[in-house]
Amino acid sequence: MVGQHAEGKLDNGVAKVVCAAKAVGGDIEVVVFATAGAAVAGQAAAIEGVTKALHVDRAENEHPLAAVLAPQVVALAKAGGYTHVLAAGNTFGKDLLPRVAALLDVQQVSDVMAVHSTTSFDRPIYAGNAIVTVEAMAAPCVVATVRLASFQAAGTAGAAAPVEAVSTDAQLPAHTRFVSLAAQKSERPDLQSATRVVSGGRALGSAEKFKEVMEPLADKLGAAIGASRAAVDSGYCASDMQVGQTGKIIAPELYVACGISGAIQHLAGIKDARTIVAINKDPDAPIFEVADFGLVGDLFQLVPEFAQKA
């Protein structure tokens, strides 16, 4: 498993990929690529089910660039005789793993949502409107990304697994260079792992209104804020807030959709939400077909009232 991390912290998704790896069975080794990765590998070693955590320390690993990481993953995969190479189905894993798969000459399995055997998996196609069961070839190995919304996070181990520094002789390219990362700093829970999410759509009308209406509800519920593509495209909020087929796939306990029509591409991102609340002025909006609680009316009145009374 390739473990993603940033600013010294292992990504929350890693424990979910471990959960999927446990369903596959066998030893589970997590590798992190860093400049000095011992501490972050230690976090991986503390996840229940992990048998070993590896770190590859190189100056080139300061930023996660697929072209730089892929040859290292391939070198490890070949040398270590691994049966499976896994990563999270987020933008990190989606960027990296197909590059690894091609170098290993393997057809990757994207977005594993259920594990039937070491080679048989379910995955969604057509924005989750169909589920295929696929059989992958065992040799040379299985390469797969894991749909995070489909797995619980593995817990903390009683005793941490060993941590080991490893090196590879992989030649790294200089043709790809990191320039900058503009990250949204937020005190709110992370959208992908939040237990509650409130989302706004095109109906919010402006960035100001989006903030004014959605933030008090998010604050009250302790929720992360998401959005439809239309809200992001219209500039009401940042692109990393988009929920859906081509944005983030999430599985909160509670999802509140405000002024979102419920296009199939949006619904693809919330299929695993435990309870969906929809507030929309159009009683025929498709979002009501999937909502556990539907409330018809003007969101500019209803959402502030909800925030106040919740």
């Binding site: 990190f92 790809t176 990191f178 990362l181 949204q184 990393d240």
Partner: peptide, 14 residues
């Protein structure tokens, strides 16, 4: 400029 989960990453490529 790339849309990644953390925000917007910019890279330079040959």
């Amino acid at each position: 400029t790339r849309e990644v989960d953390a925000g917007l990453q910019t890279i330079e490529i040959d």
